[in-house]
Design a binder for these strands. Structure first.
Lengths: 346, 346
DNA sequence: CTGAAAGCGCTTACAG
DNA sequence: CTGAAAGCGCTTACAG
C-alpha cells in the first residue's frame, strides 16, 4: 500500500494501483471493473472485486474527474438566504431530491442577505468545480455570472432575478400574489390596511409592496405612511413594530410581506387581543397557521415547485441547453383560514 | 488556452499553464502567487495577477488537493433526517457556521429514516473524499465506520449514537428530558397521561418513551396501552390518531415525543375544543408555540448546540485527535407557556 | 527568488 | 480482452 504522511485525512487509503497489484492485473483493468465496463473476463472481474473488498478500496471520484472528458464533479452548489428558514430549506429539499435521482450531491450555504458572502461562496464553489449553481441572491451585481458562463458554468437564480437577465430565474408571483391577497382583504369592506414588510432593498419585498399598493389604488385608496413599516427582518422586530403601530393607530386590516413578519404581527395581535378584530393576510405559508384562532389566511408560495423547476433548468443548462435565459413565475395560492375573512363589527 | 471537448462542464477554463504563459513566468511562480507565498518578486506578482484577471483564471481546488500533502477537500458531509425539518435544518445551519469560519463547505443530504440511503450517501461522500462526516443515522448497523476510520475518515454522530460506540456522538437528553416533561405534567395532579410518539424503532423515540414511562412509574402510575400511540411519522397521522383517541378516552394530560406529532395533536385538541382541558407538553420546540391559546409548553432541544458541538468534535478528529469516542449529552430545557400548567377543573 | 521534473489517482488514446 | 504510456491541473521536492 502506498504510504502517505502521518495524520493525513486519507492516510493509507488504497489506490487502484494497490488493488491491481493484489489482483495481479493492470491498473486499467481495475478501472474497467470499477466503472462497470463489460469487456472484462469474468474471472478477472471476480479477482478485482475480491482485492478491492479486502483492501476497502474506494474510487477517488475527484481524481477520476480530473482526466475524464467533460470533467463533472457530480456536485452542484446551492446558495440560500438561510438554510434554516422554512422557505429556503424547502427549496433545498426539492433541489436535493431532483439531484439525487441523477447521482448529484448538493453543497448548500447561507448568505444572510450579505452580498460579500455571496461573492466569496460563489468563488469557493467554482474553485471546487461544481457542475452548476443555484442562487437565491443577496447582492444586485451579477456581472460575474457572464464571465463564469463563458467558462462553462451553469447558473439558475431562485426567488429573485438577476438584472439584467443573464441567467434563468424561478420566482414566485410576488406582485400578483400580494395584490390578490390585499384585494381579498378589501372584500370584507375594510378600508384601512396596514403593511408590515421586510427591507425594501430586497427585490421580493419591493414587488410585494408594489402589489399591496396596486390593490389599494384600484380600490380608490392609497397606502398610509402611518400604517406602513418596512425593514423588518425578524419575528421580534415585527412583533415590536406591530405592538407600537396597533396601539397608536388601529387599522381594520393588515398585510404582512413574509413569514417571520407574519408570525411577529400575529403574536402582537394576540397579545393585544385584537386577533378577532383586525383582519390579516400574510404572504408565504407559516407553520401552525390552522391551529390558531382564527386560523391565519396566507398567500402561500410553493417552495417545492421553485426548487424543482430550478433544478430542472440547471440540469438542462448543464446538458448543453443554450437557449436565451427566461424567468419562470410560480403562482401563489390563497389559503383561507379565517383571519382574512373576519366580518366587520357592525 | 488549452482546448477541451465541446459542451464540457468547464470547457476552455484557463489553467495555471495559460496564466504562466501569458505572464511569461513558470507555472510554479503562478502557483506561489495563487497560494500567497511571499517569496515572489513584487513585479512578478503583479504580472501574474494581471494575467489571471484577464483570463478569468480560477484555481482548481480539486486538482490542487490531489497532490497536496494531507489532501483535504475542505468539504465535509452532513447526513440529516430531512434538511427541511426544523430540527435538522437548525443543526445544518450551526454546522455550516462552524465550518465556514474554517473555509470548509458542507454537502448536506436527507436520509428519511432510510438505512439503504444512508449507506449509499456515505459511499458517495467518501468517493468525493470529504474530510469528515456528521451523521444523524437512519440505520443501526454502523460497522462500516470502523473500516473507514482506519482509512482516515473522521465521523461524528448527532441526535442518535452508533452502537457499539465507534465514534463521537452528540445527543439530546432524550430520556431525562422526557421524564422531566412528564413529571412537570403530573405536578398539576393529573393522573392519566396519554402518549403520542414516533416509531419505537427510532432510538430517540424509544428513549423518550422510556423517560415517559419512568416518570409515571415513579408517581405510582403506569402507561396505559389505550392511551398510547406509537409509529406516528407525520402531522396528519398524529392529528388523526389524536382525534380518535381523545374522542374515545379522555386523558387528563398528553405527552408528545416530537415536533410534528405535537403539532398534529395540538390541532386535534383545538378541533375538539379540548385545549383548555387536556394538558400537553411536547418534546422539541415548535414554531408559533407562544401565539396559541394556551401557549404550548415544550421540552426544547438545542439543535444549534448539537450542531456546533458536532462540528467541533469533527474538526478535532480531522486534526488528529484520537482519544476514545465519547457521547456528549446536550441538556433540554422546559419552556412553560400554559398548556402544561392548566389547573384541573374542580 | 525561480523553474523543470516527478507525482497525486485516475482516464484517455493507443497498441498489442 | 488487456495493459503501458501520456495526460488532467495542480503541488512537492529539488536544483540552480
Amino acid at each position: 500500500m502506498l504510504s502517505h504522511e502521518e495524520g493525513a485525512a486519507h492516510r493509507d487509503r488504497p489506490t487502484m494501483r494497490d488493488v491491481a497489484a493484489l489482483a495481479g492485473v493492470g491498473i486499467k483493468t481495475v478501472s474497467r471493473v470499477v466503472n462497470g465496463v463489460s469487456t472484462v473476463a469474468p474471472e478477472l472481474v471476480e479477482r478485482v472485486h475480491a482485492a478491492a473488498d479486502k483492501l476497502g478500496y474506494r474510487p477517488n471520484l475527484t481524481a477520476a474527474n480530473l482526466r475524464r472528458t467533460g470533467g463533472r464533479t457530480d456536485t452542484i452548489g446551492l446558495l440560500l438566504e438561510d438554510v434554516s428558514n422554512p422557505f429556503s430549506s424547502a427549496v433545498l429539499r426539492a433541489v436535493e431530491d431532483y439531484a439525487r435521482e441523477r447521482n448529484v450531491l448538493v453543497l448548500a450555504s447561507s448568505l444572510d442577505e450579505n452580498p460579500q458572502r455571496e461573492r466569496e461562496l460563489i468563488r469557493a464553489l467554482i474553485n471546487r468545480r461544481v457542475d452548476g449553481l443555484i442562487i437565491m441572491p443577496a447582492g444586485d451585481d451579477h456581472r460575474y455570472v457572464f464571465t463564469e458562463q463563458q467558462a462553462g458554468m451553469s447558473f439558475v437564480f431562485v426567488d429573485r432575478q438577476p438584472s439584467p437577465l443573464l441567467a434563468d430565474a424561478i420566482v414566485s408571483d410576488n406582485r400578483g400574489g400580494a395584490r390578490a391577497a390585499v384585494e381579498h382583504l378589501l372584500r370584507t369592506r375594510r378600508r384601512t390596511v396596514g403593511y408590515f414588510g421586510d427591507d425594501l432593498g430586497i427585490q421580493t419585498a419591493k414587488e410585494r409592496f408594489q402589489g399591496f399598493t396596486e390593490a389599494l389604488v384600484d380600490a380608490g385608496l392609497r397606502p398610509d405612511d402611518e400604517l406602513t413599516r418596512h425593514g423588518l427582518r425578524t419575528t421580534e422586530q415585527a412583533r415590536h413594530a406591530a405592538r407600537a403601530l396597533l396601539a397608536a393607530h388601529q387599522p381594520q386590516a393588515v398585510f404582512t410581506s413574509q413569514n417571520l413578519v407574519t408570525i411577529g404581527v400575529v403574536e402582537a395581535l394576540h397579545e393585544l387581543d385584537l386577533q378577532h378584530r383586525v383582519a390579516i393576510v400574510g404572504f408565504d405559508e407559516i407553520p401552525f397557521a390552522a391551529a390558531l384562532q382564527p386560523g391565519i389566511t396566507v398567500m402561500a408560495q410553493d417552495p417545492v415547485a421553485v426548487g424543482r423547476h430550478a433544478a430542472g433548468r440547471l440540469f438542462d443548462r448543464m446538458n448543453g441547453d443554450d437557449s436565451p435565459p427566461k424567468v419562470h413565475t410560480i403562482p401563489t395560492r390563497l389559503i383561507k383560514r379565517g383571519s382574512g375573512e373576519l366580518t366587520l363589527p357592525t
